[in-house]
Structure formats: C-alpha cells, structure tokens
C-alpha cells in the first residue's frame, strides 16, 4: 500500500514566470548543447558497448559470458557487493545516527572523514591497504606469521570496496536525519519505547527511502569500482578478478567481444540503477532532496 502522506511531499516543479524566461532561440540553443553533449559523451559510448558486444552475433556474446573466468569474475563481483553493501549499510546508519542525533567532540572531524573516500583517488585508497597489509607493510609480517591473507585475495578486495563506497549511505542519511531532528525519537522514548524500539519503529521508517537510495548508489559503485580494487587484487584470473578488472584484461588481450560482453553487463547494471534511482526520486523526491551531492 502506498503511504498516503506522500501527497504532501510531491516535488513541485514551479513553472518559471514569464519575466525570467529566455527567448525561444536561446532556450533551443541551450537545450541543443545539453542534448548533444549527453549524446556524444554518454549515449554514444553506451551504444558502442552493446554494439561491440553483439558484433559477432548473439552466440559469441553468450559464449563470452559463459567462459569460466568471466563467470568467476561475475561471482566475485556479486560476492564483494554482497559483503560490502550490508556492512556499509550498518556503518552508514551508525555514523549518520551518531552525527545527526548527538553532540560530541570531534563531530566535525568525523563528518569530514566520511567524505574522505570521495576526495581521495581510489588508487590511493588501494595503495593504503598495500602499505598496511603488504609483505613489506606495517602489519605484513604479523599477518604472515599468523597465516592471514588479505592482499591479492578476496578480503583485500572487500576492504578496498568498503573504503571506496563508505560515504554513500552515510551522506544520504546525515542531512535527512538532521532535518528531521530528535522530536520523533523523544516522543517514542516518552511513550516508553527503549532506544532500539525508537530506532526500529520510528527512526528507520522515517529515513527508509533515503536509505534505499543510498544503498542503490553504494551497490552500483561497489560493483563498478576499478581503481582501488585493481591495486589490491593482484589480477589473478578466476580468483581475484572482479568484472571491471576482467574487462580490462580481456580488452588488453584483444578479446573485444569478451570485454564488451562483460562491460555490457556493467552497463546494464548502471541502467537498472538509473531507472530505480529516478523512480525513487520521482516518488520520494522531497525526502531525499536534501542530499543532492553526487
């Protein structure tokens, strides 16, 4: 059942008053430039991806996807997303909860820290883990002595992915929770709810659409991340190759159909994400409007 309260949240697209409307030619030129730009830089590459993937027929396409290395890359990507997205969901909610609902020292610092993965090049994020866990790294010797393998293995890839995708959920929720304030939670507590009940029955439902939106973006990035994962993965075929890495390897081997077939899956994921994101924005626009930052 659709929540009826949504009616009042409908984003209203106010029509511009006549005084600020530019003349027709100016509008057409502006729109023309925008559409041409999008066509050349976004639409065209997308078409090329699918065109190349299917250039040798549907048979070659499915065959490319069915190869063991490709299937292993798809499995690994799904596994990494399945681990890092739920973890970031939990981290993101806790961080947003702490920042939005409480006053404490170092709050501004924590807020800045959450944005760090966005401001740092993903390659650097990967390198940090190499410096930390690598054979010559800070913890390398200790890890080796205890037989723990992080680098050039799945744990390293998961760690790097978590790092890179950390901000998505938290950044979506912080402005939303701040805007909503503590009133509803205080009401729940005054009615006898404990902290957990207040969170579960009141806080979470209040932010659910923003949360879903954040998870969606987080997932898209987790599956598509290249830089950080590339540094820590070691590119071992069939073992530590995620889909984006596999695309690169296939392409470097002049296997255009294989490379573009895998790329088409990632492009498909992007399109699905885009559609879901647009649907969410259309229905719950005002609730997540506070957070347009990406």
């Amino acid at each position: 059942m659709a929540d009826p309260e949504i009616k009042s949240y409908e984003p209203h697209h106010e029509s511009q008053s006549a005084a600020v409307t530019e003349s027709r030619p100016v509008r057409w030129v502006a729109m023309g430039i925008a559409f041409a730009f999008l066509a050349v830089f976004l639409l065209l590459p997308l078409i090329v991806v699918f065109h190349e993937a299917l250039s040798k027929g549907i048979g070659a396409y499915t065959e490319a996807l069915a190869s063991p290395d490709t299937r292993s890359a798809i499995r690994l990507t799904l596994l990494v997303a399945a681990i890092s997205v739920p973890l970031n969901l939990i981290f993101g909610i806790s961080a947003a909860w702490a920042i939005a609902k409480f006053e404490f020292k170092g709050k501004a610092f924590l807020t800045t820290l959450i944005d760090l993965p966005f401001s740092v090049s993903p390659v650097i994020s990967g390198l940090v883990y190499v410096l930390l866990f690598g054979a010559q790294g800070l913890l390398g010797a200790w890890l080796k002595a205890h037989g723990i393998v992080i680098l050039f293995a799945v744990p390293g890839i998961v760690l790097a992915t978590i790092f890179v995708t950390f901000p998505f959920v938290a950044r979506e929720l912080i402005p939303l929770m701040q805007e909503q304030g503590n009133g509803d939670e205080e009401a729940a507590l005054s009615l006898g709810a404990n902290g957990w009940q207040a969170f579960w029955y009141v806080t979470l439902p209040n932010v659910k659409w923003g949360l879903l939106y954040g998870v969606l973006l987080c997932n898209a990035r987790a599956m598509g991340e290249f830089g950080a994962v590339s540094v820590v993965s070691g590119h071992i075929r069939g073992l530590t190759n995620t889909m984006p890495l596999h695309v690169e390897i296939l392409y470097n081997e002049y296997n255009a159909v294989g490379a573009f077939a895998v790329a088409s899956l990632l492009a498909g994921l992007a399109l699905v994400t885009l559609v879901l994101k647009t649907l969410l924005e259309m229905r719950y626009g005002a609730e997540i409007a506070a957070t347009r930052g990406h």
Binding site: D3, E5, G183, D184, E186, A187, A188, Y201, V202, P205, N206
Partner: peptide
C-alpha cells in the same frame, strides 16, 4: 505533548 506534535508520520 510536543510543540510540533512529533506524530509518527508513517
């Protein structure tokens, strides 16, 4: 009873 009611909107 809160100033802005704080009713649970969902």
């Amino acid at each position: 009873v809160f100033q802005h009611y704080a009713l649970f909107r969902h």
